[in-house]
């Protein structure tokens, strides 16, 4: 359910960029999904297939999802680590004074027109 809103955003953004560039048809798009972006790729793809049928410019658009690794930074020992494996606790020193550096993004990387 939650993925649907994001699919709508992606579709709107692609259409907007394509129209700005004077394109008539979008053939492909690449979307970068962070590991902790809370989007489930299989749900996203199902909703994507359903949504693009309603958008003339996008009916043939092939979506490529690229997973981006999530990395956290520890402010105590100044090291980075994989967020998915260790969560909020630093595996090097055990501190919880950590924050996510990257991995929650949903970025539209490029489109093919």
């Amino acid at each position: 359910m939650h993925e649907l809103g994001i699919v709508f955003y992606v579709v709107d953004e692609i259409e907007k960029v394509a129209k700005e560039k004077g394109a008539t048809k979008v053939l492909g798009a690449t979307l970068e999904l962070g590991e902790v972006s809370s989007v489930i790729p299989s749900y996203f793809m199902e909703l994507w297939e359903w949504t693009i049928k309603k958008h003339e410019m996008l009916v043939d658009c092939k979506l490529d999802l690229v997973t981006m690794k999530a990395i956290s930074y520890c402010t105590e020992c100044k090291k980075t680590y994989g967020t998915v494996e260790f969560g909020k606790t630093c595996p090097n020193c055990g501190s919880v004074k950590t924050y996510l550096v990257t991995g929650n993004q949903i970025n539209l990387k490029n489109i093919k027109v």
Partner: peptide, 17 residues
């Protein structure tokens, strides 16, 4: 056949919001 090209966007889908 129309020309095919790649447009780089590199933008968060939430940025508009």
């Amino acid at each position: 056949m129309d020309e095919v090209k790649i447009i780089e966007i590199k933008k968060s889908v939430f940025s508009e919001n």
